[in-house]
Amino acid sequence: MAKSSDIPFARDSSSFFISWISMLMVFIATLILATALITHDSVKNWHKDIAGSLTVQIPSYDSDGKKRGELLQSDTETALTIIRSADGVLGATVLSDAQMDSLMAPWLGEHITTTELPLPKLIDVTIDTKNLPDLNQIKADLSEQVPMAILDSHRIALSKLITLAQNIIRLVGIVLILILISLAFSIMFVTKSGLKVHRKVISLIHMMGASDFYITRQFANRSFYLTLIGGIIGFLIALPVMMFFAYYLNNLTGSFILNATLTHEQWGILTCIPVLTATLSYLTAFKTVWGDLKRSL
């Protein structure tokens, strides 16, 4: 003969609010966590792009086509001083004539020297990948003292994008915490309401010798089950929405800026959301009922 719950939860319509709220919360949490994971991956890729070395060009001819001679030399030294003094720069060296010849050999051949060509002086900058330099600041300093120096603008754009993405990830973290707090408060209020509705039954079960744990466990199990059901539905609804946005983003950027594809590990993290929210729900309901029963006779 099937055992029903001792507490008539089925007659308590407020309990079903838990499923609705958890469905909504898990839906939002899944979308924003997926966004954060994709952004995190992209940030790693962008780091690789700007990691290692960076090149600064000092043109050897001015805008009128005249050779700059000694001015080129002084500009190069000033640029080296500015770059080397920046935080996050491990080193900076001017490419020698031999290195320039070697670089141009594939296009010009082995027997032509680059000193006869109007090529710029190239400064090779080694960057600390764990402590990226402020490229905007370096660019501003160079513009002020060596106006003709050219810094790779793509790297500067990526640097700004990384800062933006890192802030987005932090924001997502805050939103996730707020979602979990909201869910916990909702469950706490619904559980308190359930305690009031079922006060007489709880009192009767107590009189029969039920321990606080016996009663608390029934509320907590109910809360876990409803949150899990709502969470799974919310997760399933989030899937097509995620697929649509992934398709849209990949088409929009051609996977150049953002590669909106999740790895197996990231899918694993996302599928944990309904279970984690259900566990949070169990713990919240347990603590709420336990605390309330302690105040009863």
């Binding site: 008539p8 039954v201 009189m207 010798g209």
Partner: peptide, 23 residues
């Protein structure tokens, strides 16, 4: 509270209004 629960399990009660669980 645990002792109370344990003692209550040794006591049977018939209430005047029965107090059966309708569900």
């Amino acid at each position: 509270r645990a002792e109370k629960a344990q003692i209550r399990r040794q006591i049977g009660v018939v209430f005047q209004d029965y107090r059966l669980l309708n569900h």
